[in-house]
């Protein structure tokens, strides 16, 4: 075990250093910079990932200024069933999603052609095309951006955790004792701020790559206009007789995984639970709302037709009575 860890650390340190030196200040590719209007997606080829966690460390380092610095002791919250979510003393946790760790490496050991093979998969927010977290956030704190990012604004999030409840992968994680709720009614409403991957929106604005992509020594991830990423994912899948995850899930996401083994098998083999999302097929959770929105356009017409029908009937009856009076 000790050998395994030291070897892993060695590979991780060495490759991360090579990757960082080689890719330091890598600008966003021209195709990405030019795509200011459309959604950008990331392609994650899990065959390439060696689980070195360089991306995880880079994510933590780059996003450290955004991490919560909660005020303690936490205000007493009512009723007593409201639980404190405190990760501030466990900032080093890297094997799951936390408010201080927005990306982690999930492992899945499966049998491929009779041989056991372990896949390491970078996991973070999928950045859905129609994200229920942003659609159903009652406060506008979670929102989608034009470039395909879904981000939570820490300045206005109240930490109600609704985004986590409606996220098919339950990605956002809460930290108590920080954020706007502390200035409103900390005892009775809100419970902190929700945190998750924002795909380095600020770096993208500066024309830089997200940190996890920049430091990866194996080029596991790439970013580009979604249609191009989808094309490339299909080309790889065709070449290796592989599988795609994220293109159709939840109506489509901006994180596209390609794997040589079915995601159903990977999902079965991976450890799942709090902070460790699944890789199951996901129906479009906002499809019902989109369909009802169309019905809302027709509804006033139906009401108007009913009113016209009633008026016509009323007028006809009225004329009939007048005729009979003559």
């Amino acid at each position: 075990m000790a050998n395994e860890i030291s070897r892993r650390l060695f590979i991780k340190g060495g490759l991360a250093a090579i990757g960082t030196v080689g890719a330091s200040s890598l600008p966003l590719p021209a195709t990405v910079r030019g795509a200011t209007q459309g959604a950008l997606a990331t392609l994650i080829d899990i065959r390439k990932c060696i689980g070195c966690e360089a991306c995880v460390e880079a994510c933590q380092e780059v996003n450290e200024p955004k991490f919560p610095e909660p005020e303690k002791p936490f205000p007493k919250m009512y009723p007593s069933r409201v639980k404190v979510s405190d990760w501030s003393d466990e900032r080093d946790v890297m094997d799951r999603l936390t408010p201080y760790n927005w990306l982690f490496i999930q492992e899945a050991t499966v049998t491929v052609n009779g041989e056991e093979q372990t896949f390491t998969i970078p996991r973070r927010c999928m950045h859905c095309q129609n994200p229920p977290c942003a659609d159903l956030c009652p406060w506008g704190a979670a929102r989608k951006l034009k470039n395909g990012i879904t981000r939570i604004d820490a300045d206005i999030c109240l930490g109600g955790s609704k985004c986590k409840a409606v996220c098919p992968w339950h990605i956002p994680e809460r930290q108590t004792g920080v954020g706007l709720y502390m200035d409103i009614l900390p005892a009775f409403a809100g419970n902190g701020v929700m945190y998750k991957c924002d795909r380095c929106y600020d770096r993208l604005e500066q024309g830089e790559l997200p940190a996890c992509i920049e430091v990866c020594p194996e080029n596991v991830q790439k970013i580009g206009p979604r249609d191009e990423i989808i094309k490339e994912a299909h080309a790889i899948a065709k070449e290796i007789n592989g599988h795609i995850y994220g293109e159709k899930e939840n109506g489509g996401t901006n994180t596209i995984y390609v794997s040589p083994v079915p995601f159903e098998e990977l999902n079965k083999a991976m450890e799942k639970g709090p902070g460790k999302p699944h890789m199951k097929p996901v129906e479009d959770s906002m499809a019902h709302a989109d369909n009802l929105a169309k019905a809302m356009v027709i509804a006033p017409l139906a009401g108007a037709v009913a009113a016209l029908g009633k008026f016509y009937k009323f007028t006809k009856n009225d004329n009939g009575s007048e005729e009979s009076r003559k």
């Binding site: 809302m296 509804a299 009401g303 009113a307």
Partner: peptide, 14 residues
């Protein structure tokens, strides 16, 4: 909301 929209249109036009 769908029902309310229909109702409002019905009442306004009526």
């Amino acid at each position: 909301a769908i029902f309310l929209f229909a109702l409002i249109a019905y009442v306004i036009l009526g």
